[in-house]
Write a protein that binds this DNA or RNA. Structure first.
Lengths: 181, 181
DNA sequence: ACACCTGGACCGTCTGGACGGTACAGTTTA
DNA sequence: TAAACTGTACCGTCCAGACGGTCCAGGTGT
């Protein structure tokens, strides 16, 4: 891993820390630089502008989720609706850093939808795989529920306990496994 | 309806039009004023600051959805899982104006989650009613799917045709009606 | 009937500050 | 020695919000 890659990851971590602590409104280049222990010029050396920093976050989250999903997939392969279930699991264990990045991404994407074009593409692939793999539309509905849970959690809109979440998560997996009548 | 109410609604409509046409990034007080045929001061007369304008949008969308849901509820009452189904239907027929406002709200809320406190409260009520009314967690999962669909659509992240959407919508209603095994 | 006043609705302009981004000369580190 | 920075100074733009003034419909007193 090159020095550049290390620094870039430090910058992304710093950005996530800021969002997690103070909210997306405080995500400025100056703040990121301070948090990462760099100068503003240092940050802009690695990311020519703020947008490219956010794009890197999109990439990062997408890759992490895809990687986890792939691992779950080998574990679940053979079972019914394995694709959706791997997706559900991969999204279920977002770590705080990914969560913070997702909030930043959401804030940016709401103002400029083009920013999440890679996510669009990725989602299209997911959708396709799920449709092919799953019984009818059940898979899609469970995928939508997973995303709904993610968005609502990000905006802190859901008054659910951890136990509730875990129960619902298990329930979704069970629904997928049971499949369609 | 007082003149003030008329103007306020004109302002909200103007804001929605801007977001629908140019995206949330272009939602400025100046732009709203121009669109509404008012001066900036005029807009600020009705809404002391931008935040309060967004809060009014939150209120507006929340009320509209609740009202539609209530109508659907009387229609569906007696049936199985009527509460979720009314929710699903109410969210399904968001008009373009509500959709645009939701995007503006999303953009603002991602930066300042406190802004959607009313939505949080409202959602808690929904959740409670659904839990009480529905079989196990099925209702909640369908509610999450509804919200997921809404969010993903808002960010234009879902490569689904109208027909797909309609089919999925019907499928969700059917799942609610069928209930839990 | 007329002057007077009030208050709501609205206009136009200005300012202050936040931020993204640039420039560049110098310094450390692998 | 080249990449990876630092540090500072600076620019331009955008935008929220403040503010003083205007217009006018409709009371109010005489």
């Amino acid at each position: 891993m090159s020095q550049a890659q290390i620094s870039q990851e430090r910058i992304l971590n710093a950005a996530a820390a800021i969002v997690g602590r103070s909210g997306a409104a405080h995500l400025t280049i100056d703040a990121v630089a301070a948090e990462a222990g760099l100068s503003k010029g240092g940050v802009l050396y690695h990311f020519p502008n703020k947008r490219s920093m956010i794009e890197a976050m999109v990439q990062f989250v997408l890759e992490n989720v895809a990687e986890r999903a792939a691992r779950h997939r080998t574990r679940l392969s053979g079972g019914r609706n394995a694709v959706v279930r791997s997706f559900i699991c991969a999204e279920h264990d977002l770590d705080p850093r990914e969560r913070a990045m997702s909030i930043a991404i959401l804030a940016a994407a709401a103002e400029d939808p083009d920013l999440v074009a890679p996510a669009r593409a990725r989602l299209a692939v997911w959708l396709d795989e799920i449709m092919r793999d799953s019984d009818g539309d059940l898979g899609i509905i469970l995928m939508l529920a997973t995303e709904g849970l993610r968005f609502l959690s990000m905006l802190d809109l859901l008054p659910l306990t951890c136990a509730d979440r875990e129960r619902i998560h298990q329930r979704m997996l069970a629904m997928a496994e049971a499949g369609d009548p």
